[in-house]
Computed example of a mutant assay.
Amino acid sequence: MLDLAARNSNRPILLEATDRFDFGSDEYRRLFPNASASAFQHPDWLTAFYRNVAPAHDAEPLVVTGRDSGGELQLLVPLVRRKSGDAAGSIEYASLGVTDYVCPILATGIRVGQQTAQHFRDVLGLHAGLKIGPVHHSHLHQWRSLLGVEPSTLDFGAHAVRYGSPYSEWRRINLRPRRAAGLDRKARKLAEAGGLQLELVAPGDVRQALIAARDFRAGRFRGDPLQTAHGLEFYIDVATNGARSGLARTYRLASKDGPVAFVFGLVDGECFRYILLACDYGSYARYSPGFLVLDHVMAEWAADGGTIFDFTIGDERFKADFGCSRTTMHEFRL
């Protein structure tokens, strides 16, 4: 037992570690929507992660759960333990290069007391080290309370933009007149040459779309997880199930001759978290297809009531062209 208790209650919560947990279970589906977490902790994301990504990295599940005296799940921390390589025995968050924002899943109304850090370490047992990252600033307090240490700053940030209203006016200002006019001109030329339409990919068409996206990205990004068998299956898994649950959207910008570009991302309330971009630069480079598809997706998200477009982690220069603000990312180590 430890000093992690429900608000206005002295009932302690028991922490345990397990190598088996069903993220599609009723208890996790009850916890997640009532917890302070992000789309990267959604049942569909974590189920796909442990099915596809963890085994490919020779990492075994290590999930810390916290239940109240009635057995109700109140806290969960998804981790993995490395089984081989230089990091053998080490424990880290269930990220492995695909999860941009890591955080504990903590039920609303649960507070973390001062002795929690030691109990959390105890339940993990002997290990060669614990690494938690990348951590967005909005999740720093939770990790400080749970780990009892201060984070270090990573050498990359996250980038997001909040829309103004109306969207057309926000676009005119934030894309800068020259950039907006240039995109409009290229969109018109492409439409005149062969039509242009932004489509939401249906669940049954996701596999074909992401295979095409993988081929468009071949040789363009170092360490691209989409180029691996397990990475491709992971994103297909999330995108297919997420299209049904509302977690994920895969957009296709197409002309009469076929796909021009794809964008895949996660729906997180009023925020769209962009993850993958793939373009047919061989056929459409002169039209700036990357900028073009992102501009179209941002407009579509605003039309659907979205207020934030999150370009997630990475300091690529193009993000500044969309009026993004940078947030420092962090990492915790024990």
Rank of each mutant, 00 (worst) to 15 (best):
D257W: 15
L253I: 12
F32E: 11
D280R: 13
S255L: 04
E192T: 12
L200Y: 08
D310M: 00
I91W: 03
S9V: 05
R172M: 07
G194I: 02
T307P: 01
E270T: 15
P259R: 03
D310R: 00
L31P: 00
S25T: 00
P12A: 08
Q114L: 12
Y284A: 00
T18R: 14
F272L: 11
W45V: 00
D257A: 15
S288C: 08
H159V: 03
H330N: 06
V102N: 04
D44R: 11
Q227D: 01
E331N: 07
Q74H: 10
L247V: 08
V64A: 04
E331K: 06
L294Y: 02
Y284Q: 03
Y287T: 03
L46C: 02
A213L: 13
D68N: 11
F262A: 05
K83E: 15
V260Q: 05
F332R: 06
L154C: 10
E316M: 01
F311W: 05
V112S: 01
A193D: 13
G164V: 02
K186T: 04
R252Q: 13
R317M: 10
E199G: 12
R111M: 13
H119C: 10
P134A: 02
H42P: 02
S9F: 06
G66N: 02
H141N: 15
A229C: 09
S288V: 06
L198P: 01
